[in-house]
């Protein structure tokens, strides 16, 4: 597998050849197969792909949050320190302090019986050894930071007393409490309506600008990617099929799956859009069979015998060194015009 040299900025997180499988009654399900990505300091990387393609599993595996049944191989390095297979106590020191998470459902992801102040304060108490009182005071500052009005009052509220957007802001406040180096945001805006969504993305951008946090944002929504990401990782059936700076990817997709995704996409810009993944004919392959072939072959318009016999590696495509694609027959330029 060819890997792009890390961009000029320092690489904070380095994922190489990450594979995750789950033993089930009906056999082993391979959820992620050889995924690789880099996060540079202060960079926002978007990860897209259809439902079930392994985005969340990839995200969760970074800080070892998968259930005990998951079999994880490969490497995830945080500033050079290996996290795959690290001791649980070592991972606990990383979680919440250096790598923090935001999840999709802010309602169910917050504990219903604890005040939001308590839930934010908890992180500070465990990692910064703050007293409960100091943590509470800091929680108020954090709530203000993520744009919650009258924070002194809201800090004592329970999650059910807040709106969806505010709950997600609470989640963000909790995630950034210890100033993490990496923030994994798994569909942070999917459960919210568009105007609220724009506000949340703005908060994330502000955090990156202010704290220099690297953000991995997982989404179905190409609009979100166009709005916030610097670089994009496209996943298909457990594999990374294309990786590029956001403008390059939107301008010239190399993988036919990416091209399919983009066929109803917005242009990169500063506005959130509601555009969703376009329907691509065919079914997502069963993940329990990882053939020695391109997983997209059955749905690909350009597939031939070679695609069904060997899996294409993720290689530098085109002229740029940081545009990678895994395809034997990359799309011709401007594929969308060509289709018309």
């Amino acid at each position: 597998m060819t890997t792009a040299p890390a961009s000029t900025a320092t690489t904070v997180l380095e994922m190489r050849d990450l594979s995750v499988s789950f033993p089930t009654e009906t056999g082993t399900v391979s959820a992620v197969d050889g995924a690789a990505l880099d996060l540079a300091a202060g960079e926002i990387v978007g990860m897209v792909g259809e439902s079930g393609c392994g985005k969340s599993v990839t995200g969760m595996s970074i800080a070892g949050l998968l259930p005990g049944s998951a079999r994880v191989t490969g490497s995830v390095r945080l500033n050079g320190t290996e996290l795959v297979g690290a001791r649980e106590s070592a991972l606990r020191r990383v979680r919440g302090r250096e790598i923090a998470y935001i999840f999709q459902e802010p309602m169910t992801s917050l504990n219903p019986v604890l005040t939001v102040g308590r839930q934010i304060g908890e992180v500070l108490q465990v990692h910064e050894r703050m007293s409960r009182r100091a943590a509470h005071a800091r929680a108020v500052e954090l709530l203000t930071l993520v744009g919650i009005p009258s924070a002194t009052h809201r800090v004592g509220a329970y999650p059910h007393q807040l709106s969806g957007g505010m709950r997600q802001r609470v989640m963000i406040a909790m995630a950034v409490a210890c100033g993490p180096k990496v923030l994994v945001a798994d569909e942070p805006t999917t459960a919210l309506d568009v105007t609220v969504q724009a506000g949340i993305l703005q908060v994330l951008r502000d955090l990156r600008d202010r704290l220099g946090t690297s953000i991995l944002i997982i989404t179905h929504d190409l609009g979100v990617i166009a709005d916030i990401a610097d670089r994009v990782v496209v996943m298909y059936a457990g594999r990374v099929v294309e990786r590029a700076p956001v403008t390059d990817l939107f301008a010239r997709p190399y993988h036919h799956y990416t091209a399919g995704l983009l066929s109803a996409s917005p242009k990169p810009g500063r506005h959130a859009s509601t555009a969703r993944l376009a329907e691509i004919p065919g079914l997502v392959p069963v993940l329990s069979t990882q053939p020695d072939a391109c997983t997209f072959a059955d749905r690909c318009p350009a597939a031939d015998a070679r695609c069904r016999e060997s899996a294409p590696p993720l290689e530098v495509a085109g002229d740029g060194t940081d545009h990678l694609a895994a395809c034997w027959h990359p799309c011709p330029p401007q594929p969308r015009e060509a289709n018309r």
């Binding site: 949050l65 606990r92 990383v94 302090r97 923090a100 992801s109 990692h127 989640m171 909790m174």
Partner: peptide
């Protein structure tokens, strides 16, 4: 899951 992700 959130509580675990916080490093508790």
């Amino acid at each position: 899951r959130t509580a675990k992700a916080k490093g508790l």
